[in-house]
Design a protein around this nucleic acid. Sequence first.
RNA 1: GUGGUUGUAGCUCAGUUGGUUAGAGCGCCUGAUUGUGGUUCAGGAGGUCGUCGGUUCGAGACCGAUCUUCCACCCCA
Length: 455
Amino acid sequence: MSSSKPTQPKGTRDFGPEQAAKRNYIVDTIKTQFIRYGFSQIETPAMENLSVLTGKYGDEGDQLLFKILNSGDFLKNSTESDFNLGSDHLLKKVAEKGLRYDLTVPFARFIVQNQHQITMPFKRFQIQPVWRADKPQKGRYREFYQCDADIVGSNDLWNEAELSLLIHDVFENLNYDGFVLKINHRELLNEMARVVGLAGKEMPFCITIDKLDKIGAEKVNVELEKLGANDQLQKVISLFDLKTSNEEKLNSYIELVGENRGTEDLSQYFKLLAAANRKNMKIELDLSLARGLTYYTGTIFEVKATDVTIGSITGGGRYDNLTGVFGLKGTSGVGISFGLDRIYDVLEEKDLFPSDLGQSSELLIAHFDETSKIHGIGVLAAVRNSGIRAEIFPDNAKIKKQFNYADKKRIPFVLVIGSEEIKTQTYALKDMKSGTQESMSLEEILNKLAKMKTA
RNA sequence: GUGGUUGUAGCUCAGUUGGUUAGAGCGCCUGAUUGUGGUUCAGGAGGUCGUCGGUUCGAGACCGAUCUUCCACCCCA
């Protein structure tokens, strides 16, 4: 025993075989849909230069970045006066890199660097971990996977509609229907802020509105009055209470606030979506949806689980000028991000994982001694060549132990080889589930297992 | 970042106002069964009570610090 128990860093986790299989199931499902919709995969490094990351997520986001200490003598460029100027100043001297905070900003960098090779509109997907120095709790980790799909170089609202269809296909294939896709538009919020006399204070307005379902309409009222809202406030807040259809909500909004880019975008979005003829859409126009990430400028999306308390499981929106900060102007993009870890938690809580996710062998070859093991290795090769997942017990152990192993790993069939079997060239094949066993030639065994597989 | 919460066997948890040798269930190992798992029976291993320090004749229990877990806020996937 070592002197202290080893542990992972706070907010990070190991994934055992069962968890990894379940995670793969989600990733495979999402990936299949991404490809079906015409997205191409890319990957980017875990670390980015801090100059790429800093300033894209607001002040709070900057604090949540994991910074990487410079290699070698990281203090060699620093003096005592640097130290006295405080950590913000010193940071630039000792750290130039950081772990990525999301997949969208690294993607923006990728586009700018590869703009001449990329054919627009560019549809990319990316499934990789991201890191945030957040305080961990349930559904919130310091290392977690995002599954992003983005379309850049196209302003058309069809992209938003297509992403909405994609979201439905992903959750449908995961057999989860407890979600709702909320949609809103930043411009709708901005105009609302102006109508209540809060022009120039759009951000604080949004942040307060976003709290509606948490602190209630009354407190939101008070906070907005403090900000300086005028007597139009009551009418505007009444919009958030509407339980009508999406189209009617939009009309109510237009009556009160008037038409703008947001209303035009959304009505076009609903029109295009209707053309797809999909049934049972779970889309809700939520005029109070704000979302924090500062780079969103148009439509915004959020998928919430209605039957599990875990926050949003997918989020996204349109950003008109994300590549602008890297020197490429006029490239609009829209994207969504599936939160693998939260979707995992939801499926786990709802018991929605298929039961046959195990990756263990379909056949174990058990043997009594060295001679039968050697013989078994030849049998194993034949079994594997026929496409059946199989393994042989590596040690010369008691047969009981080998059966126990098959039972624990839920291997459905055990092929037993001993001196009798070698002599007659027939093997005992035991069905672990039923407990029955019969003697068969190798050919018969392969046929039987192949049949079980297709059944 | 603010406030709270949790930690005892591999896992889930008991453990009385501080008192001698820290328990249970499940799991694990061995045997009953030297060519057969999952059931049954018998036996066994496994704990510096998160860590460090303090109070006390005596601490798993009380106090402090620290780490960890979970929760609310903040923010978000």
